[in-house]
């Protein structure tokens, strides 16, 4: 495919595209690219968090486990799924589904699109820190292939918690950063309004992250973002997912773990 990455957009412009309510959400990727999705709910500890969606579907005939942040397109939808900001229960559900996938030898595909983990009183009471920490730790040791797809905005530990993958692919206008640019600006300069300046310094775009070895593949987008031509975006991701899965499904369980471990061990 001869589509090249557009370098003319600023990081700040990409953040706006990544947050566009019209951009395809995790549920769209699931419905358009997979067959027979069955949603599986609950953390088995007393809670169900709608900010994370998970379940099983078939990808070209192979059962896979899918886990992703759920964002809505309307205000009502967004209120229901807390704008894609998970509480600890969401990460515990994700962990449960990952362990289940490992038990049955299913590859895992995660979709990352979140402003971050929810900063609330209950989230802290229920262990936001340890839920994220455990999700990261357990994901690092899974013996099945994990592919993470960064589709929109991916901020902080709330994104990383389900992105410890063998292969990380990222749409051209998606952004992945240590914190939201607003949070970053408010920590460094005590001024959230300087977020546009923050965007340019944070090296949060797909091409910056590829250069730094933090992500593996960039999926180009049409002008105006994938929201302009979602079908094309789904097809391009489909090609990459097939290629990546083929590569990892040939590996032994031990090598799947080791190759992921090495990837993150090298991050300096």
């Amino acid at each position: 495919m001869e589509i090249s990455v557009d370098n003319s957009l600023t990081a700040y412009e990409r953040v706006k595209l990544a947050r566009d309510p019209g951009r395809p959400k995790t549920i769209d990727f699931i419905n358009e690219m997979f067959d027979g999705f069955m949603e599986l709910k609950g953390d088995r500890l007393g809670r169900e968090d709608k900010a994370i969606i998970g379940g099983i579907a078939k990808f070209h005939g192979i059962p896979v486990t899918i886990i992703g942040h759920r964002k809505g397109k309307t205000l009502e939808e967004n209120i229901e799924c807390n704008f894609g900001m998970p509480e600890p229960e969401g990460y515990r559900k994700a962990m449960r589904l990952m362990k289940q996938a490992e038990k049955f030898g299913r590859p895992i595909i995660t979709f990352i699109d979140t402003p971050g983990a929810y900063p609330g009183i209950e989230a802290e009471e229920n262990g936001q820190s340890i839920a994220i920490a455990k999700s990261i730790a357990e994901m690092s040791s899974l013996k099945v292939p994990v592919i993470a797809v960064i589709t929109g905005e991916a901020n902080s530990g709330g994104a990383l918690a389900i992105a410890v993958a063998n292969s990380i692919v990222m749409y051209e206008n998606a952004v992945y950063s240590i914190l939201s640019p607003e949070g970053f600006a408010s920590i460094l300069w005590k001024d959230a309004a300087k977020s546009d300046k923050a965007c340019e310094l944070m090296k949060m775009t797909a091409s910056d992250l590829k250069k730094d070895g933090i992500i593996d593949e960039i999926i180009p987008e049409p002008e105006g973002g994938i929201q302009e031509n979602p079908q094309e975006a789904f097809i391009m991701l489909d090609v990459i997912l097939r290629k990546e899965l083929r590569k990892y499904m040939k590996m032994s369980e031990d090598n799947i773990y080791k190759s992921r471990y090495k990837k993150f061990r090298k991050m300096a």
């Binding site: 990261i136 690092s140 410890v164 240590i178 944070m202 090296k203 993150f264 061990r265 991050m267």
Partner: peptide, 14 residues
């Protein structure tokens, strides 16, 4: 930036 975030993955994994 992201290099710091990746330390979370590295330290938890070890």
């Amino acid at each position: 930036g992201m290099h710091s975030l990746m330390q979370m993955a590295k330290t938890s994994a070890v």
